[in-house]
Nucleic acid binder design. Sequence first.
DNA 1: CAAGTTCTTTAGAACAATTCTAATCTATTG
DNA 2: CAATAGATTAGAATTGTTCTAAAGAACTTG
Lengths: 140, 140
Amino acid sequence: MGKKPLDSNAAATERLRAAGLRPTRQRLELVALLFAGGHCHMTAESLHGAARAAGAQVSLATVYNTLHQFTAAGLLRQVVVDAARCYFDTNTGDHQHFFVEDEGTLIDIPGDSIAVAGVPPPPKGLSVDRIDVVVRVKRS
Amino acid sequence: MGKKPLDSNAAATERLRAAGLRPTRQRLELVALLFAGGHCHMTAESLHGAARAAGAQVSLATVYNTLHQFTAAGLLRQVVVDAARCYFDTNTGDHQHFFVEDEGTLIDIPGDSIAVAGVPPPPKGLSVDRIDVVVRVKRS
DNA sequence: CAAGTTCTTTAGAACAATTCTAATCTATTG
DNA sequence: CAATAGATTAGAATTGTTCTAAAGAACTTG
């Protein structure tokens, strides 16, 4: 009857295995934090803080490594909205974001509510990888 | 009969005055580089390089200051597409961008060709400041 | 299940982009 | 043209991120 139910641990292990990553203690802890509740937007710094707060012993370097590995494996998506910081989104599906400039926080916009039309064909030799929409909002 | 025609200098001076900024030697040089030809996308580093190459004597700190002052004054627009670098766009009108990930370059998309529909109303107390669309393209 | 191989983690150093600071200099004003 | 408010500068400081080399943990094989 530990704090962490075995199923959640098993699920995390399987998730890592599927991504071709070894289920190490650190990765399991980070997976637990990232995919426990609903979707979330994390920075390396904030995830590291959350891990430490949860009593996990993980170095910042490992958090960076892990975030990048997860992104490469398609478990996370990187969101660039702020020159200062880099966000990682546990929602890898089709969607966009509000960015609250005053707070530096992100809010999801479902992909089926938003539509971008009239994108010209990219220049010769280039193909569209992804279209990102950022709705910058301010306190009014 | 200097290399820089007086009119361009006068125009630059007026542009700065209108923005409430003193027309100093450094700012005039940077204005000349930024607004000489067509629209361009610059990083602090690249503008500094261009200034030095043009024989201007400007420090990197001043380039940063100036870019931010110009942005605050509405002469430039900041474009965030890459976690690493920060771009400034001399085109402050309504438009969007292709971002060529392999090269780190930007290409303008006219604002009247592209349209974003279905943006939900922002959460209470927030109002939309701007909508940025970034079409990420890759070499195919 | 021991040995060996490979992959991970880690602390700290290194880095790159940007911002800060305090001294110096310059444009403007009276 | 002196006074003043604002601008510039070099270099230091900060910040977010990546690198490195050594120690540790997970998988594989015999």
